[in-house]
């Protein structure tokens, strides 16, 4: 048996990208970004508010954090719920102590469930972003276009009904279909946190015009480092501060760039991890080279 002949044909083999959402551009060739007040590093902290239901389909793949043992997996249901009940309030307190503003992507399906949390996030002046419908409604290459369009519309409607008008979108599990960027632009989203192709925000083309992808760095994801890779809290804190120092050192050559990372409530909001959150945030808050901003502000400042 052999592969079909066209397996060795390469229709997109040419200079630059193999898709037309955005052009190829070397970091050395990009125009220098000037963040407000001449700051070197734009800091975006992302606190994902995701609800993990007891009976996910897990199709086409499990969202990180989804149930693991046979139904009813009360163990994982409640450990995830801990984040939205308890852990997130510790994170809010530390953000406030540092005078920091973060982005809170929230699943549309749980806006009603977490009313007091939404009000606390708003009261502290953070940016609220749409985080898709729920953790079991993934946007992916095989999704039906009408179904995906309805998911985005349903998510927008849920935010509308709670008097919220987010302009930033993050997809569940940060996964997309080939059409997701068009569909979120259609619903008025102007920034997206799924792509991380540069150290600065990148404008991408959609059927409805331009949209800005503000990079969120998966390699600094707290869940990935602390849970999947079993790193220590001290190692995690050190890497955040190392990234900040590196971007400051590059400022003269590359201009303003972005430092971003997640604080996942059920991970970073654990009592035994909070000291490292506090140390990382207070160091960043005290750094005169850091411009703390949300996704909407970064998209605007980089336009």
């Amino acid at each position: 048996m052999s592969l079909p002949d066209d397996y060795l044909r390469y229709p997109h083999r040419r200079y630059g990208m193999d898709q037309d959402r955005y052009p190829w551009r070397l970091s050395i060739d990009r125009p220098r970004l000037a963040w407000p007040e001449g700051k070197a590093v734009a800091l975006m902290i992302v606190v994902p508010i995701e609800h993990h239901m007891l009976n996910p389909s897990g199709k086409p793949f499990k969202h990180p954090g989804a149930m693991q043992t046979p139904y009813p997996d009360l163990r994982h249901f409640t450990t995830r719920d801990y984040g939205n009940r308890v852990g997130v309030f510790r994170i809010l307190r530390e953000l406030k102590a540092g005078g920091l503003r973060a982005v809170f992507p929230i699943n549309g399906a749980v806006l009603g469930r977490f009313g007091p949390l939404i009000r606390a996030i708003e009261a502290d002046g953070h940016e609220i972003a749409a985080y898709g419908w729920d953790t079991d409604s993934l946007h992916w290459g095989g999704i039906d276009l009408d179904l995906e369009r309805s998911l985005v519309a349903k998510t927008r409607a849920a935010f509308d009904s709670h008097g919220l008008r987010p302009t930033t979108w993050m997809s569940p599990a940060r996964q997309q279909s080939f059409a997701t960027l068009d569909l979120i632009a259609e619903q008025g989203f102007t920034a997206c946190l799924d792509w991380e192709m540069d150290q600065v925000p990148v404008a991408v083309q959609t059927a409805m015009g331009r949209l800005t992808c503000v990079p969120l760095f998966n390699e600094l994801d707290d869940r990935k480092l602390l849970i999947d890779q079993r790193q220590t809290e001290a190692e995690w804190r050190d890497q955040i501060l190392e990234a900040c120092a590196h971007l400051k050192a590059e400022h003269a050559r590359f201009g303003g760039q972005v430092l971003s990372f997640t604080l996942t409530p059920y991970v970073s909001g654990q009592p035994f991890r909070l000291w490292a959150v506090r140390e990382a945030l207070s160091a960043l808050a005290a750094d005169p080279a850091v411009w703390n901003a949300d996704a909407a502000q970064m998209a605007e400042a980089s336009a």
Partner: peptide, 12 residues
């Protein structure tokens, strides 16, 4: 199968 066991109320 239920999405939410409803064993307790959300209580921040």
């Amino acid at each position: 199968m239920r999405a939410d066991p409803n064993l307790y109320d959300y209580w921040p």
